[in-house]
Amino acid sequence: MYFGQVLTAMVTPFNANGEVDYEATAALVQHLIANGSDGLVVGGTTGESPTLTTEEKLQVFKFVKDTVGEQIPVIAGTGSNNTHASIQLTQQAEEIGVDGVMLVTPYYNKPSQEGLFQHFKTIAQSTSLPVMLYNIPGRSVINMSPETIIALSKIDNIVSVKDAGGNLDDTAAIIQGTPVDFTLYSGDDSMTLPVLSVGGTGVISVASHIIGNEMQAMVQHFKHGEVQQAAAMHRKLLPIMKALFEAPSPTPVKAALNITGIPVGGVRLPLVPLNETEMNTLRQVIPVRQTRAIS
């Protein structure tokens, strides 16, 4: 299922007391819509989902969907390592009216490939919403195999995967083995162009908070056959992409947004703010001119 080509994995703005800042959230949503985002993924890793309560997640889902309306799709992160809890959250998100859900590979309990298949199948069968799988072995420890993803793609409402596996051979195998309308999105900004080159649809991006229009332009160049221009843009944007992951995400991207005049507050423990050296490094690649370009 096509959700767009540049989707933003949205941060969750907090106020000075560490509470969700809904005024800042509304401003951030409008900024993202105006600057290249075809869709929003809410309550994922970049949204600090491990530190959000269930009630906070539902409130954020509803607020973002109400703010966006029908302008672009809103995909709610409802996955966890607890199948039953994920079913409940998914069903509540469906009642709110989101456009789809994203389900992360279960972390910590390390299920087998059969366990992964049954986990995702069971959640998908509990909802009528489109389901996007999310494979991220760097955080979940286990890798969902291409064979498991291909098998899951045969379930009617499992329609997409966010691929942060970092293995282009696996990426190509998934694209080759899934239905033509099953979409694959890069889960790493720096892998966007390589993933497109083997048939991927687009990217679920962190960097698009800051360089959304540029990410769109890069994808458009590639899809129009302007490969050299796309590659040149990729090389130009790479230092920014890299800088946004020099510390645990989403700490750098939140700092970058604050630098560029889009206040989103800080991060919740166990994440900590950037130190002075990290801030100086970030400022070198997120210059003041960037504010004018994206605001």
Score class of each variant (00 low, 15 high):
222 F>T: 01
163 D>V: 01
203 V>G: 01
167 N>R: 07
189 D>W: 06
87 I>V: 14
109 N>L: 12
243 A>W: 10
272 V>Y: 09
98 V>H: 05
58 L>C: 08
295 S>P: 10
175 I>P: 09
288 V>D: 15
155 I>Y: 05
27 A>S: 15
9 A>W: 08
168 L>H: 04
15 N>A: 02
172 A>C: 03
202 G>E: 03
204 I>H: 06
232 A>V: 05
144 M>P: 04
119 H>Q: 07
88 Q>H: 08
44 G>N: 10
115 G>H: 05
260 T>P: 06
198 V>T: 04
266 G>V: 06
40 L>S: 03
71 Q>F: 01
112 S>H: 02
262 I>A: 12
47 G>N: 11
225 G>Q: 10
10 M>E: 03
159 V>C: 11
238 L>M: 15
173 A>S: 09
131 V>L: 01
67 T>A: 09
107 Y>F: 11
151 A>G: 05
158 I>M: 08
91 Q>P: 06
107 Y>N: 05
21 D>N: 13
149 I>Q: 07
191 M>A: 15
53 T>H: 06
57 K>T: 02
23 E>R: 15
3 F>Y: 08
62 K>A: 15
224 H>D: 15
189 D>Y: 06
163 D>G: 01
203 V>Q: 00
268 R>C: 01
252 P>N: 11
65 K>P: 08
277 T>M: 11
168 L>D: 06
241 M>K: 13
112 S>G: 09
101 V>F: 02
64 V>P: 00
188 D>F: 13
70 E>I: 10
73 P>Q: 05
67 T>W: 08
33 I>R: 10
124 A>T: 00
160 S>P: 04
65 K>H: 02
259 I>T: 13
262 I>L: 15
274 L>G: 07
171 T>S: 14
91 Q>C: 02
156 D>W: 01
196 L>V: 00
226 E>V: 02
174 I>A: 01
293 A>P: 03
207 A>Y: 09
249 S>N: 15
151 A>R: 13
168 L>T: 04
8 T>H: 11
23 E>D: 15
243 A>G: 14
22 Y>C: 03
231 A>L: 13
223 K>Q: 14
9 A>H: 11
90 T>A: 02
266 G>I: 04
262 I>H: 15
250 P>I: 09
3 F>P: 04
89 L>H: 03
111 P>Q: 00
140 S>A: 12
126 S>Q: 03
71 Q>Y: 02
289 R>T: 14
126 S>I: 04
151 A>T: 05
138 G>D: 04
39 G>W: 05
145 S>R: 05
64 V>M: 00
61 F>S: 01
146 P>H: 03
33 I>N: 10
78 T>G: 01
11 V>P: 09
225 G>T: 07
293 A>V: 07
